[in-house]
Design a protein around this nucleic acid. Structure first.
Length: 293
DNA sequence: AGTTGTGTTGAAGA
DNA sequence: ATCTTCAACACAAC
């Protein structure tokens, strides 16, 4: 599940590889993922990759001719950089196969549904097991001005995101703190993994309402947010299930996890057993002893 | 072997 | 408006 640290890792790695390259051809087998239409994506041929940025969990690939390719990897998508061949098997079926040995051969990297062929003989591909990803191709102006992009909350790792901005953002919403932290229009880039991790670090129960939080509680959450997200970014993200970097390799935050998917294991602070409960259809992990209501 | 969990987002329902 | 539920999809685990 790519959240801010994972998406940022992908963007930074891709920057080193594909900026300056021209797209020679495009292949895909899941046209439903592509908006406004898959046919329209053919117009990407011949365009040059000028820059890559991240906004929330979106990857923005800036192209020549003032065009923009937006990719949201959703749950199981991740961009890869490598070389593949499309192998035909009987009755018009086919299989995408990595030509490079190593991590790219791993099963999680073999749900390729989009390939951009670059002018250096390499390719950028999207692997997405569940086919939830969103691919948007259009003019820079058109995509940057989409309501869903414009209404996104502030970027939490930016230097100018201070406690004042955090408090402003978080207190404009009501509800449980975990849900508010995951709201992309409050703060951009936090999902299920890091909301659990941040609240454990801050010793705040995920069910606490924003209204019930003291100034001191908010400060603890703010500093935990900065600490956890930057640590996860430094460790190149979490690969509990299918996230991989563009080389197909895992992130290292997995081994440092405090609570996420550690139900029944010992709390790293007090040795109580980590609990998992449902909140609005998704699971929240927390320590029942350190994180009191 | 059918059911459930997985977790992002937008849309639909209440 | 604001909340919750669901659908999109594939696979593992039970």
């Amino acid at each position: 599940m790519p959240e801010l640290p994972e998406v940022e890792t992908i963007v930074r790695d891709l920057k080193k590889k594909i900026i300056g390259r021209t797209i020679k051809a495009v292949w895909f087998d899941a046209p439903k993922l592509i908006k406004p239409s898959a046919k329209n994506l053919q117009k990407i041929k011949g365009l040059k990759i000028e820059d890559i940025k991240r906004r929330a969990k979106n990857i923005l690939i800036y192209l020549s001719d003032k065009k923009l390719l937006l990719i949201h990897q959703k749950l199981t998508g991740h961009l890869l950089y490598g070389k593949w061949k499309i192998k035909k098997i009987q009755n018009s079926k086919f299989k995408v196969q990595s030509l490079l040995k190593g991590p790219l051969e791993e099963v999680v990297n073999n749900y390729i549904h989009l390939i951009l062929y670059l002018d250096n003989g390499w390719q950028m591909a999207l692997s997405d097991l569940r086919k939830f990803a969103k691919i948007l191709f259009g003019s820079q102006e058109e995509i940057e001005n989409l309501e869903e992009i414009k209404k996104l909350g502030p970027e939490p790792l930016e230097k100018n995101f201070d406690f004042k901005k955090f408090k402003e953002a978080i207190t404009k919403k009501s509800g449980k703190i975990k849900q508010v932290l995951m709201d992309q229009n409050v703060i951009a880039g936090i999902g299920n993994i890091y909301s659990d991790e941040i609240l454990w670090e801050a010793k705040i129960h995920p069910f606490r309402t924003v209204k019930s939080l003291s100034e001191d509680d908010l400060k603890k959450i703010f500093w935990s947010l900065k600490k956890i997200l930057s640590e996860a970014l430094r460790l190149r993200g979490t690969s509990v299930s299918d996230y991989r970097d563009p080389a197909g390799k895992k992130g290292y935050y997995e081994v440092r996890r405090r609570v996420y998917q550690r139900e029944g294991e010992k709390c790293r602070r007090c040795s109580a057993l980590i609990k998992r409960v449902k909140i609005a259809g998704r699971s929240a992990h927390f320590c029942p002893k350190c994180q009191k209501i």
